[in-house]
Amino acid sequence: MAPAGLDEKARRNRRWVVVSLLPVAAFFIVLTAFPVVNLLGLSFFHVEWQDGAARFDFVGMENFRRLFSQETVFWAGVRNNIVFAVVAVSGQMILGFSMALAVKTAGSYGRALLTGIFLLPIVVPPIVIGTMWRLIMGREFGLANTLLGFFGLGPVDWLGDPDLALASVIFVDIWHWTPFVFLLMLAGLESLDGEVLEAARIDTVSRWQQIRHVIMPMMLPTIAITLLFRVILSFKVFDEVYLLTSGGPGTATEVVNFSIYRTFFRQDQVGYGAAMSVVTLFSISLIIILARAFVQRRASRREAAT
């Protein structure tokens, strides 16, 4: 325990703090922060591929001007994304919460089996879900049309009809993510104070009153956070759309991510694609930061109240 040894220990501890954070920090800086800067830079250039090498021409705000004045497909995607977020997420929330309430009320027969089945859509590769529903919703040999055929209906072109395609894609997304909301809500319900619920059963005359006046207010934080989480993540949608419709027919199921992908990789418009990425990145960041601030303010108000 000589002073030299003490310094050694303190030095080692300081080194551990740096070493333990270094990999995460390096990953984030090199592969996430740098790309954002890179995109920002690229968005001011027109990039041309010549003989496998890129040629950069500085064009100033041209890419952004074009995006905000001439672009139509991207903005159709924005519109679809918003419709998608509103409809799909409300569907998931309502279905997920109702089912969670139902299971909580009804007692659980075969709970493990049920959980297992509900986990399936969450852990299966999204591309598989796209594949599945493409086969089911296929015009010619799809299961959906085969079933309709039994009743003498159809065939319906689920994914090819411009009026139906977005609804079909939204349906798949609801199917995909309702189980997730369900599991979150169920965990939320199960973590409620049992004695408060028992008190509520004594104080109320109907199940509806319990839900409306006791369970809903107590679940509000969980509901709010799940809702924000799902809304923000709904802007990530890509895999299923890629497989189901590739944004078509026309721009019926175009989403922002698909516009970016196409601009970058199919049309090789790197500068323009970077501009789209930058606009998307900053808009969604803004939404996330606002949502976060909202949740935190609510949380601190709650704390102040109790």
Binding site: L21, T32, K236, F258
Partner: peptide, 27 residues
């Protein structure tokens, strides 16, 4: 440091992957 790492992780987790893919490809 804590705030930067966890905050950035949260932000990056929620941003569409597709917005980064082009840059990764070029890098």
């Amino acid at each position: 440091v804590r705030w930067a790492i966890l905050g950035w992780a949260l932000l990056f987790h929620m941003l569409p992957t597709l917005t980064f893919v082009g840059s990764w490809y070029l890098m």
